[in-house]
Design a protein around this nucleic acid. Structure first.
Lengths: 215, 215
DNA sequence: AACTTGTCCTGTCATGCCGTCAGCTTACCG
DNA sequence: CGGTAAGCTGACGGCATGACAGGACAAGTT
């Protein structure tokens, strides 16, 4: 068991308490997606949830603590990303499909969790181990199976053995993450979002197989 | 002329004033690289600069305003990045060198401006137009010449014409930016930093030319 | 040296958020 | 119905914010 939900001062939270707690998390998530992280205040979250700041501090040590909670929830969801790579084929035409679905699925996940991932990314970049770990959980859910796929192809002589499989997978996932984070940047380069998949997918295919994508 | 430096209340800053202002900026830059953005307080910056919070507010509207200043300075420096691509050759072996130097130079620039770029990236992701513009200035200093290079190769039939040059360049720059931002992530994948260049450079080469990198 | 002018800095104050605690209310159970 | 633990909040000291007025200072003028 993960143990019951507890308040900061050690009480176990009952039905009503968990509801309040959840409402606070929901409101915080909402706030994160509408105002800059730096400006998210406990008092605003509490007000939005129709409760008082003191209540917030009953359930979370501070804003960061609550954010971590939301992030961990999201990290759990990220297991679904494994399916984008696990057991997929990279041979010929089906490899193209695999890479396209990977790009699509990954971008969609990132878009869905946009706001919280922004904060996680910042925290990780600033050297916070907890955020870093969460970010790794998300990226690993794709990077691990992808590295395995590369190793597999290398073993079968269908990919460049000189490349470090983990480094290749990591770079590609970084590519997807960054493209996902800054979709707006592309439009300002005159690139339409729909042009993004046709560009990223061949890069992924190229990185994994070392071959040019077939038409 | 960019116009003289002015205080918030409109006075022109003299020699001494500019020194104080600069010292505040330097201390803020220092703070950004040692503590989380969310926790950077005016009072700490002022204390470190041996002055009072009121003085800070003479020169900057708020922390964000000062951060923008630092970011703009950095954006100016980013013109040096153009040299990494402008007039370089992508043919054969020298193409490999070009891509390697591009990766190296870009990662170095990002490492040098680590802290401020983190904040700029966050601001841009949160939709702040000013930060977004600064980020684009930095990325464009490489993306523009890179897109030109791709177009050039396409015209000469040495690259896939079906690809959108701007999208390719943008994706590759995104790749570099993201790898640069999260160099730590790679080490946790068991990838050494020195393995990063040999992985990224071929990807860049592949993206630009559509061909596998020569040995 | 006294005076003037404009720059530069800070003490102080009102305001608002933070984070804690004591104590009140509510729900559940025997 | 009374006991117990959960749930909530008003109130408070502390600190950051941001505005202002006034004092310190440098440099030039008479």
């Amino acid at each position: 068991m993960t143990g019951q939900v507890r308040t900061v001062d050690g009480r176990v939270a009952g039905r009503r308490g968990q509801e309040t707690r959840q409402k606070l998390l929901d409101c915080l998530r909402e706030m994160l997606s509408t105002s800059p992280y730096r400006d998210v205040k406990v008092i605003d979250v509490a007000r939005m949830a129709g409760t008082s700041p003191a209540t917030f501090y009953q359930y979370f040590p501070d804003v960061e603590g609550a954010v971590l909670e939301i992030a961990e929830e999201m990290a759990k969801d990220s297991v679904e990303l494994k399916e984008l790579v696990d057991g997929k084929s990279w041979a010929g035409k089906s490899g193209t499909t695999t890479s396209e679905e990977l790009v699509d699925g990954f971008l969609a996940f990132w878009r869905k969790n946009d706001a919280i991932l922004r904060v996680v990314t910042l925290g990780a970049a600033e050297g916070d181990k907890r955020f870093f770990k969460i970010r790794m959980t998300v990226l690993n859910s794709v990077a691990k199976p992808l590295a395995d796929a590369v190793k597999d192809l290398q073993a079968k002589g269908q990919a460049d053995r000189a490349q470090d499989a983990a480094a290749v997978a990591g770079s590609l996932i970084s590519l997807l993450a960054s493209a996902a984070e800054h979709q707006k940047a592309f439009t300002s380069w005159g690139v339409k979002i729909k042009d993004l998949k046709p560009t990223l997918a061949p890069l992924v295919y190229l990185g994994v197989t070392g071959k040019k994508a077939p038409k």
